[in-house]
């Protein structure tokens, strides 16, 4: 659906005042829950997500166990009140799909071969949704996995780029997502640049795709720095505490 509103003006200003290459405001805090093995709360623009990691623990039921490595089970869930029109509680087809692609993205960076037969459960709760919840959820999951002490090759991070009013921009907001031309969320391993998750909907030329992809990568690196800061902020003071 096209909007009659101008999503981006001739000077390149977006509805919320951002320029095309700006991220929304991001706030990350590690270790916020008592019962979970690892946790993270993350605010990204108007999105609020909370992630809890449990494990590694023996996978149940038994038939889901892999004798050679751990399974990573992400579960993306939207709270009923997180969207404008109340959502019926429980999984729907959309959340099942998102859970699947996030699980697969995380599995690539977790050192799963260290934990045969185990599962690492990543519970992503979307409490406030405003475009880009899968990127917010995956980014928070990366921090929660670190907080749980899970062995990882890298801390996964996600960000989207898209196209509005004929221009490629970073990190679509709500209106931009609803009325824009294309959305391209990606997740990467920032150390290697490997792409862990990629989805696209809308319409992009090959050149626009390349531009959007580069921009989303740039966004990922920026968000990655915020993730690292949040973890170090929580654990820097712990440095002196450990006696070898």
């Amino acid at each position: 659906m096209k909007s009659d509103r101008e999503l981006i003006n001739s000077e390149g200003r977006r509805l919320d005042g951002r320029s095309p290459h700006d991220l929304r405001k991001i706030k990350i805090e590690a270790g916020v829950l008592h019962r979970a093995d690892g946790s993270c709360s993350l605010e990204w623009g108007g999105n609020k997500v909370l992630v809890a990691v449990y494990g590694p623990r023996e996978a149940v039921p038994r038939h889901v166990q892999n004798p050679l490595k751990a399974i990573v089970q992400a579960r993306y869930n939207m709270a009923a009140f997180s969207v404008e029109d109340r959502k019926r509680p429980g999984p729907d087809r959309r959340s099942v799909e998102i859970s699947k692609v996030i699980s697969e993205a995380l599995e690539k960076v977790v050192l799963i071969e260290q934990f045969p037969r185990a599962s690492i459960d990543v519970n992503i709760e979307v409490l406030d949704a405003e475009a880009g919840t899968r990127c917010a959820g995956l980014t928070a999951a990366g921090v929660a996995l670190v907080d749980a002490g899970i062995p990882l090759r890298d801390i996964p991070v996600a960000c989207a780029a898209g196209k509005i009013g004929g221009r490629v921009v970073l990190d679509l907001g709500k209106e931009e997502d609803n009325y824009g031309d294309a959305d391209l969320p990606i997740a990467i391993s920032p150390r290697t640049g490997e792409v862990l998750l990629l989805q696209m909907d809308g319409h992009l030329t090959i050149d626009e795709f390349n531009e959007a992809f580069d921009l989303a990568m740039k966004g990922c690196y920026e968000v990655s720095e915020i993730q690292k800061k949040a973890i170090l902020q929580k654990y820097q003071s712990a440095a002196a505490e450990v006696q070898e």
Binding site: R57, L111, A148, G149, P151, L152, Y235, E244
Partner: peptide, 24 residues
């Protein structure tokens, strides 16, 4: 050589170890 988990780095006779801060 990369760290695989959150911890404190410790070098003993050329060997780098990570003493974990969290985890099972």
């Amino acid at each position: 050589i990369f760290a695989e988990r959150l911890g404190v780095m410790n070098i003993q006779e050329k060997f780098i170890h990570i003493i974990p801060l969290k985890g099972r």
